[in-house]
């Protein structure tokens, strides 16, 4: 059991070390994941801020970007 643990620990350490290139490989993956998550958060914040600003300027009941309310308005206009 102890030998098996040592082997799996050794395999894990080998994987982390990436044959001496750990700093290059893990930093690349880390930067990509961090930057993509950051860009996504910025996008969601921009959307929320813009839609809040729009609902303050145009205080009508809105669904997300105003699809539902404008659909209703369109139908009312058609009627």
């Amino acid at each position: 059991m102890q030998i098996e643990d040592k082997i799996s620990m050794h395999a894990f350490m080998e994987f982390i070390e990436m044959n001496g290139h750990a700093a290059f490989i893990w930093s690349s993956y880390g930067i990509v994941i961090f930057v993509l998550i950051w860009l996504f958060i910025v996008g969601v914040q921009f959307q929320t801020k813009s839609e809040t600003k729009l609902s303050q300027l145009n205080p009508r009941p809105r669904h997300r970007s105003g699809v539902r309310s404008e659909r209703k308005t369109g139908k009312q206009n058609e009627a």
Partner: peptide, 12 residues
């Protein structure tokens, strides 16, 4: 997501 934000900004 960005398009939703841009469309709302344009309406503003």
């Amino acid at each position: 997501i960005n398009m939703r934000g841009e469309i709302a900004e344009a309406r503003c």
